[in-house]
Structures are given as structure tokens and as C-alpha cells.
């Protein structure tokens, strides 16, 4: 069962989940995720982590299904019910995690390697060494994890998620807390891996998705608001995004009559983007970025 025929796809169908305290984290979420990098974009509290954890076999859903299957095939693995099988092909990097402070990086990674099924000693050592080199932790492999900075810990996290050639990799808010250089390296690493496996990247940083992902979805308040390829979604709002430089005091007035989707400060001046089918007075056209797609989608959903 462990190695599946490629290419793969993950089919999420009408997934819903309400927590015991009444919060409805997922409402009827349906997504189809093929191999490659898939970006799940949404604000804090949107339900991203809930979805990630459910796919990663750590949580139950109230209704719906998740199936991991070969493209177009029927059957495959029922992620919700065949947890043990899923874990064998899964690599998971949670949003927050700790480490054993007094164990070395190499030591803990080897321990995880055993748990991930790499029983052969020789092979295990090679894999661990290669992974540590990949995430540039090889030189500090003998140091205790308690001494690692946040970025180094994150790199360790991705190393353990890559153990054992997983075919389904879930990364939950991986670049929060990384400095710009570390972010770039992280993206490069993911890009290499994401060719023949499913990588689901959940984040609230739009650049992560625009830089890396071939497909994306926008989720808010537990609902999928949009799904598709980034370039396509950008094309969708082409010609509907407008820009204007204003003084701060003019903002409330502007918000009354326009769909202001973002405001930004540049050199002391306020730059606003609005969403409109036609050009509003005083605005200039601008090529939309993914950010504009994101903000406009959210704005529309909010207004509804």
C-alpha cells in the first residue's frame, strides 16, 4: 500500500467541522488538489490549520470525506478512516512545534527516521545526513536543539517532514518568523520537492503563494471562497483594480463610496486600491497582483 501510483490527487469533499465550544471551523469545504504546490491562503482563524490537521490525521471531521488517490482513479485511501496508511506517506510540518532541548539535531532526526520506517541503519544515516545538508543544518548537526534559533528550528521541522520520501506533504504557516533570506531558501527547497508529490502550503503571506504555487484556494470563516491557478485568478480581476494616492484624512470618505480593498503607506502617503467593474473617478488602472486578488475576494465575501 505505501507507494502509490503517480500522479496523485487529494479529493476533499464537503468537509465540515464544529468544535465543542460552538465554533464552526470548516463549512462544507470541497477541494481537489493535484501533485505540485498548492497554496491555501486565508486570514488568521479562517480554518486553515483545522483543515491541515484533519488531512494530517490528527483531527476528526463531523461530515464529509477526504480521499487520496491516483489521478482519475476510483477508491484510493480514505484519509479519515485509514489513518495508519496515510501516515506512511505523509510528511507534516505543524504551525507550532517544540523540540527535545537536550537532544542533538542529528539524534532527533535519526529517531524520527526510525519512526518513519527507515529501519536500515546505513540508509538512515545517509538520509539524515542528506536532509540536514539540504536544510543547511549539517554543520550544526551535533548541537543540542535547545540552542537553535527559530529559523533553524523551522529548517529542522522541514527536514523531518521530508523523511522517508513522503508523497503528501502538509506545511502549516511555515515562513512566519523566518527572515527574508531564510524564506527564500525555504521556497527553493519546497520548489524542488514539489514536483511529483502533493505539497499543501497554508499561509496568510500572499508572496508565498504567488512565488511558489501552481494552484491555490482562498479560505475564510471555514468556507472556500475561490480556487484555481493564480494566473487565472489574476486574469479574472484584470481591469477591475484601481489605484490612487490620497491623504490619510480622505480615507473614510473614500471608503463610503468605493470598495477599498487595501491601503498602504508609501513615503508618508497613503496608497489605496479599490475594486470596481469600471474606472472610478480619480483612479488609475493598475495590473492586479495576487494580493489584490486575495483582498478583493475577502472583501466581496465580507460584503455578502
Amino acid at each position: 500500500m505505501p507507494v502509490m501510483a503517480i500522479p496523485l490527487e487529494l479529493r476533499i469533499d464537503s468537509l465540515s467541522k464544529t468544535y465543542p465550544n460552538g465554533v464552526q471551523a470548516l463549512r462544507d469545504v470541497s477541494l481537489t488538489i493535484p501533485t505540485g504546490m498548492f497554496g491555501l491562503l486565508g486570514p488568521n482563524g479562517a480554518g486553515k490549520s483545522t483543515l491541515m490537521r484533519t488531512i494530517a490525521t490528527l483531527q476528526e471531521a463531523d461530515s464529509g470525506s477526504i480521499v487520496l488517490d491516483s489521478l482519475g482513479g476510483l477508491g484510493g485511501m480514505d484519509v479519515l478512516r485509514q489513518k495508519d496508511d496515510v501516515r506512511r506517506v505523509l510528511g507534516y510540518l505543524p504551525q507550532e512545534f517544540g523540540v527535545y532541548p537536550r537532544v542533538t539535531a542529528e539524534g532527533l532526526l535519526e529517531h524520527f527516521a526510525v519512526l518513519r520506517g527507515i529501519a536500515d541503519r546505513r540508509l538512515r544515516k545517509d538520509t539524515v545526513a542528506a536532509l540536514l545538508q539540504r536544510v543547511n543544518l549539517y554543520d550544526v548537526r551535533k548541537q543540542k536543539l535547545g540552542t537553535f534559533s527559530g529559523g533553524m528550528r523551522q529548517r529542522f521541522g522541514i527536514a523531518q517532514a521530508l523523511l522517508g520520501n513522503p508523497q503528501l506533504i502538509i506545511v502549516d504557516e511555515p515562513t512566519a518568523g523566518l527572515d527574508p533570506g531564510e524564506r527564500v531558501r525555504f521556497h527553493n527547497l519546497l520548489a524542488e520537492i514539489g514536483e511529483n508529490v502533493i505539497v499543501i502550503l497554508s499561509t496568510h503571506i500572499v508572496e508565498d503563494v504567488s512565488d511558489l504555487c501552481s494552484r491555490m484556494a482562498i479560505i475564510s470563516h471555514g468556507r472556500v471562497l475561490a480556487e484555481g491557478e493564480p494566473s487565472q485568478r489574476i486574469a479574472n480581476v484584470e481591469g477591475k483594480i484601481w489605484r490612487r494616492v490620497i491623504d490619510k484624512g480622505e480615507l473614510p470618505l473614500l471608503q463610503n463610496g468605493h470598495a477599498v480593498i487595501s491601503t498602504r503607506l508609501t513615503a508618508g502617503k497613503t496608497v489605496v486600491h479599490v475594486f470596481s467593474e469600471e474606472r472610478p473617478a480619480g483612479f488609475e488602472a493598475v495590473h492586479p497582483s495576487l494580493e489584490d486578488v486575495y483582498f478583493s475576494t475577502l472583501h466581496i465575501a465580507e460584503a455578502a
Binding site: 490537521r53 494530517a56 490525521t57 490528527l58 495508519d84 501516515r87 506512511r88 505523509l90 507534516y92 510540518l93 505543524p94 512545534f97 524520527f112 519512526l115 518513519r116 520506517g117 521541522g157 523531518q160
Partner: peptide, 8 residues
Amino acid sequence: EVSDAMPV
């Protein structure tokens, strides 16, 4: 979360 997602 890491260890519970392992195939143990």
C-alpha cells in the same frame, strides 16, 4: 503533532 502524525 509531529509525533502523532508519524506512522507509529
